[in-house]
């Protein structure tokens, strides 16, 4: 396996872990129940709601970073030959 391939795999594993971590924080019952409170409120919204929206936005930032790193490394642009007969 080439160094480029290993680097690509590590990057994929890192971002999957980071994005799943945000999901874990919103779904794992002990943590989710800890955040399931009304106070402190922000603009009137309960903390529980801010927790979920905030973590989803953090997840969106991770997607953006993942894309940027993949794009910079040239991992996204690829040529695919069409197989005429199958």
């Amino acid at each position: 396996m080439s160094a480029k391939s290993i680097h690509s795999r590590r990057r994929t594993a890192l971002f999957i872990t980071l994005i799943l971590a945000t999901t874990f924080l919103t779904t794992f019952p002990p943590i989710f129940l800890w955040a399931n409170t009304i106070e402190p409120r922000v603009l009137g919204l309960p903390f529980a709601m801010i927790w979920h929206i905030g973590l989803a936005l953090v997840g969106a930032v991770f997607f953006a970073l993942w894309y940027l790193l993949e794009s910079r490394s040239g991992a996204i642009d690829m040529n695919v030959d069409i197989e005429e007969a199958r």
Partner: peptide, 15 residues
Amino acid sequence: MIGMYVVPYGIITLL
């Protein structure tokens, strides 16, 4: 608030 479940589920779907 339970209706907010769509937001974290959307992140899993996009992953």
